[in-house]
Amino acid sequence: MDYKIAIMGSREAILGFKALGLEPVYSNDPTKTAEMLFSIKKEKVEVNGESKNKYAIVFVMEDLMEGITSEDYKKLTSDPLPAIIPLPSHLGSTGYGLKKLKLIVEKAVGMDILN
């Protein structure tokens, strides 16, 4: 079973990825990110009578991730698929990705032991 990969971001940022065959989802509005991610997550395909997620990975530009509340984030990442991965956009890294890693470590260990 082959899954698809989606990429979400502004037009300029994801044009290059579109050429690689990833499914583009255009968005400029951080407040709508959660809503759009939920609908991406809900998309299923039927394979041999089983319904499976259409997308295995969703890459999201960091500037769009800022609009997601931690509750929504928890709901979005509770299932094994899809993996929602923030990427720095063409404007440069905002440090969101590393901040997220820190949060993961804090959750698992109780304190930040990176660095």
Binding site: Y3, K18, A19, L20, L22, A56
Partner: peptide, 22 residues
Amino acid sequence: STAKAKIEVKTKNVMSVRIPQF
């Protein structure tokens, strides 16, 4: 571009946690 990104997913079980492998 005629490129199509395909991805296969397998899951590995580590201590009863399902870890995806792409």
